[in-house]
Amino acid sequence: MLKGHQTWVFDTKPVIRASAAVGGPFEAKGALADDFDILHEDVWLGQDSFEKAEKKMLEQACEKAIDKAGMKKEDVQFFLSGDLMNQIISSSFAARTLGRPYLGLFGACSSSMEGLALAALIVNSKAAENALAAASSHNVAAEKQFRYPTEYGSQKPPTAQWTVTGAGAALVSQKGEGPRVTSATIGRVIDMGLSDPFNMGAAMAPAAVDTIQTHLRDLNRDPNYYDLIATGDLGSIGHEITGDLLDKHGIKIPPEIFTDCGILIYKKEQPVLAGGSGCGCSATVAYGHFLNRMRKGELKRLLIVATGALMSPISYQQKETIPCIAHAVSIEM
């Protein structure tokens, strides 16, 4: 099970029986629109608040994933979910609707892979037959909580990122067909002293590097073992820093197999500055786009490294630096 210092190897190889991705209007215009199961025209989703809209999106992702697996929600033994709202209300409120035993997670934007790693661990240890892992974020709800009002006219620097409006869910099972979760590396909290909340990519890059390095060392693997290594939401600037930093540490990942969900999700002409961010970013790209590509046979071995910035608006105002984390999960066909 535990290999090296931080890596779990799942000997029964839990299967992702089904997964679902739900997105908002901006994602519908994005580069990966075809990989979403449900796309909404309206950021409100017909709800009367953005927080309720995010909850609704998460519920839909969970229902869709359960539905695609041909199961009923009673078949899911445990529900693991995380999001960016204070007290992870989106996850807990969705769990209220789902009515299944629930573990709430907070790893900021890394919650998506934190959930998948733990779901695989639960299933692998036979503590459950099926576990559902999910994560969500909502652009307006996140902006409201972490930054300024949406309509406030402040000029954002080129390093700023766009929080993805989206939710993703994956149903992990003991039996079935589909991509399999083979190992997971749980990250350490890394703080390299950056404090600019408009440059999260650069703050999170060292955490991604640490986790990738540890993952490869623990499993004694070469980066070329994977068809694709994708970071969660570093954006174009954070991704470049990560590549350079890995180079400096003597790990050469060929650029054609190294990418970032935050870069992939939107089109170049969309005004997202450095790229997408948020739990929904890695969750929708992983559970939608990447798993679809695996099912089509385009990818055999995938490593997703979801990164998270563990700060709050208060810690930022108190001039604290940004502690960051990254969790890696390898999925193989």
Partner: peptide, 8 residues
């Protein structure tokens, strides 16, 4: 690292 990141 701050310098490393700033350059990029």
């Amino acid at each position: 690292y701050k310098k490393f990141a700033k350059d990029r």
